[in-house]
Design a binder for these strands. Structure first.
Length: 105
DNA sequence: GTGTTGACCACAG
DNA sequence: GCTGTGGCCAACA
């Protein structure tokens, strides 16, 4: 297996984010049942071997900032704008565009 | 096994 | 709004 199980789970969740919405690294971490691993999530997405197949650009920071991007945060913002999101000063209105993963209990 | 790095987060000032 | 500090986790040397 070319990829670690952790990374696979991350990409798998990214794929589930609907177009026109975004999610946060923390949110992904919670979906993985590993809260606090937001940093590790970003690490996995940075390598993202499935880009642009996987919409990793739909993952932003918890405070609404775009965070980073392998091709430059600018490119990330542009992609999100194309998806119909509103970005203000490099920031996103999470209240409107955040996508929360359903945690099956 | 230890230390460094990184697309992070929360808190304090 | 900003910076700085401490803490979290995974990957790599």
């Amino acid at each position: 297996m070319p990829l670690s199980s952790f990374a696979q789970s991350v990409y798998n969740l990214c794929r589930l984010i609907p177009r026109g919405k975004v999610s946060s690294y923390s949110e992904l971490a919670r979906a993985l049942k590993k809260p606090g691993s937001a940093r590790a999530i970003g690490n996995a997405l940075n390598k993202n071997p499935f880009a642009p197949q996987v919409p990793c650009h739909r993952v932003v920071r918890a405070d609404g900032r775009v965070g980073g991007f392998a091709s430059g945060s600018k490119q990330k913002i542009l992609l999100l704008k194309k998806e119909g999101l509103l970005i203000k000063n490099g920031r996103i209105d999470l209240k409107k565009f955040i996508y929360e993963f359903k945690d099956k209990k």
